[in-house]
């Protein structure tokens, strides 16, 4: 048992306690441990340092190291709450928590607002939305005339920017999302319900089992 014990301790050494992370999120302790299996695999894909770099995050998302993606970068930056340029295990679990089907809608709404508020001013500005639209069109190799893009922006801001000041604030976003619930679809990952079956090997590294024995 001594050998197994030291191996288990090594696996989570330096990372936040799964029991504490479970208490802060929609995940059970077993699910946090299963997420550690995923975290290990992503964080060791380029440099095995127990942290996820932007390059490793992108590699896990796109299976290649192609050019930077604005949207993947936004998610990475929001997971990286301490702005270290790296995601630790706690950041990873708390970030994914927002995407759990059971996470509160308000957390999903706040996260999505930050996602689109590129410069972090507390407002989603028309210029930011245009920048994201152009980035999306570029990455999907679609072309739209500038007047078509402006027309899409006009329509969106007529609906969302109710006080017509040219930017969307948090309360306007809340109302807009309420009318367009599909906007929060990207904020829910059904996979997170089945994380323990996707990564069953967590059982062999379980801290909880270790405590029980």
């Amino acid at each position: 048992m001594g050998c197994f014990h030291s191996k288990v301790k090594k696996k989570l050494r330096g990372h936040e306690d799964p029991v504490v992370l479970a208490s802060q999120t929609a995940f059970s302790v077993s699910e946090v441990e299963a997420l550690f299996e995923l975290f290990k695999s992503i964080s060791s894909s380029v440099i095995d340092d127990g942290l996820i770099s932007k390059e490793e995050f992108q590699l896990a998302l796109f299976k290649n190291r192609k050019k930077e993606n604005l949207f993947a970068n936004r998610i990475f930056d929001l997971f990286d709450v301490k702005q270290k340029g790296l995601i630790d295990f706690g950041d990873f679990v708390r970030g994914l928590h927002v995407f759990h089907p059971n996470a509160p809608q308000e957390e999903k709404m706040n996260f999505s607002f930050k996602l689109y508020d590129l410069d972090g001013t507390g407002f989603i500005e028309r210029q930011e939305v245009k920048q994201m639209l152009i980035a999306l069109l570029c990455e999907s190799e679609m072309k739209l005339a500038d007047e078509t893009i402006e027309s899409i922006l006009d329509k969106t801001f007529v609906e969302a920017d109710t006080n017509q000041d040219g930017k969307i604030d948090k309360s306007e976003w809340q109302i807009f999302v309420g009318r367009n619930p599909s906007l929060l679809k990207i904020m829910t990952l059904p996979y997170l319900r089945d994380i323990t079956t996707t990564f069953p090997s967590f059982v062999f590294h379980s801290e909880v089992d270790e405590v029980a024995t």
């Binding site: 995923l38 992503i42 896990a60 998302l61 796109f62 299976k63 993606n69 604005l70 949207f71 993947a72 970068n73 936004r74 998610i75 994914l96 995407f99 996602l115 689109y116 939305v129 994201m132 639209l133 980035a135 999306l136 990455e139 999907s140 078509t148 027309s151 899409i152 922006l153 329509k155 969106t156 609906e159 367009n180 599909s182 906007l183 679809k185 990207i186 990952l189 996979y191 994380i195 996707t198």
Partner: peptide, 24 residues
């Protein structure tokens, strides 16, 4: 052009974290 800008933006694969869970 009756599309909503955010619905279009959300189509980016960069926002689709489900690929994190796909094993090679």
């Amino acid at each position: 052009t009756c599309l909503n800008a955010f619905d279009i933006i959300s189509l980016s694969p960069g926002f689709d974290l489900s690929s994190l869970f796909e094993k090679d």
